[in-house]
Design a binder for these strands. Sequence first.
DNA 1: TTTAAATTAATAGTATTACTATCATATTTG
DNA 2: CAAATATGATAGTAATACTATTAATTTAAA
Lengths: 226, 226
Amino acid sequence: MKSLLSNLKISVPDKIYLKDPESSKLGKRIIEHGILLIDEIGFDSFTFKKLGAKIGSNESSIYRYFESKHKLLLYLTSWYWAWIEYQMVFTTFNVPDAKEKLFKAIDVVTKTITQDDTFSHINEIVLNRIIINEYSKSYLTKEVDSENKEGYFVIYKRMIRRLSDMILEINPEYKFASSLASTIVEGALHQHFLKVHFKSITDCNDEITPSDFFKELTINAITKVT
Amino acid sequence: MKSLLSNLKISVPDKIYLKDPESSKLGKRIIEHGILLIDEIGFDSFTFKKLGAKIGSNESSIYRYFESKHKLLLYLTSWYWAWIEYQMVFTTFNVPDAKEKLFKAIDVVTKTITQDDTFSHINEIVLNRIIINEYSKSYLTKEVDSENKEGYFVIYKRMIRRLSDMILEINPEYKFASSLASTIVEGALHQHFLKVHFKSITDCNDEITPSDFFKELTINAITKVT
DNA sequence: TTTAAATTAATAGTATTACTATCATATTTG
DNA sequence: CAAATATGATAGTAATACTATTAATTTAAA
């Protein structure tokens, strides 16, 4: 995916930031080390002061890019889903068989990220861990409705709708395409979490992946003769 | 469920609290109004100081029951899952047909709570909303492994295992019973959230419930001939 | 190349949070 | 009734999540 993406810029709704972090060296350092620090100490303990110390910059300079650490999380998650969406569109493009297409899409959203080579300052492996551990916190807030109106979750919702459309391509009669799509995406993150922290309530491990589980689940859900 | 439960006490791992809130009037007020206040302002803005003001008591008195607001959340969530587990065991007891049994269990974990009548000081409708909006925050932390070792999530995991066992009763060959069970429980909370805040990525609404979706999904997953 | 504009750094300050500690006052119980 | 226990009031601390101001540095334009 590297060479194909190297000229592209993933774009994030611009209301999320005060100043585009892609537009300067400091901005990129904020993103790069923000990802590493959130992964290291967790989003709850993460502060702009600590990030400032880590990158040898000042707290107040970071506040010029993001209004709050919550906005930084929204930025990172939007970036992540835009990146996933791109891969989903790219991988399924020109695949004539609807089932093969859907399976490729499910693979994209459920797989463990193992390669970090798409964008120089963003470590996608680490960012994927942040999504698994922190994504829910970006929308489980009292402000979710107003932030949704501002468009902070458009990329995520659009990506889910693409998946839903591929489900309907196979079976236009299936009544729960959206719920199934959202369950696959959210459920895969959850299974990845469980396999690290609550092994006893998942079957996923080094051999069985969330992708295996969700592909079988999906195909049975939509092709069953009832 | 009221009369049957009225003599029972739901028990929560005792390491979660410093002093059992069931043991005093103040303790019960903390739980009762803690639930209402978290629902009202959200867990992130919730503080013991605000709760103290609301119940006409002192911040420091609340700290004598719970070490932190995080522990209070663990208490509430443990209580909730114990209550759900009780209903699950009770409702499925003596049901001979494995499929009917599983469906009853799925109903218990996925339905919207509409009655508040089991325990005087706990409003189960409001508590259910808190679980939907805040449950993930109880385990998406850096301390999850140590807290898991302390037994703070035993009830939740046991309840999921019960569900998994009922799945295996129908099809002992099914390879993903635990993952399916955990997906049903977590996924149902997620669908309830989506139907309020992100309607475009769910099919659930006033007519179609998460229960409908997950029952069909489950039965197709485990009885499909592959 | 100088000058102005923009960006970043440094410092200080505020209200709130998440507690801990101490001591006084109720309330319960033996 | 005394002693034990629970609760309340007050104070204090370090950290958080910012905002504001001013100084220093970098960049871009004339």
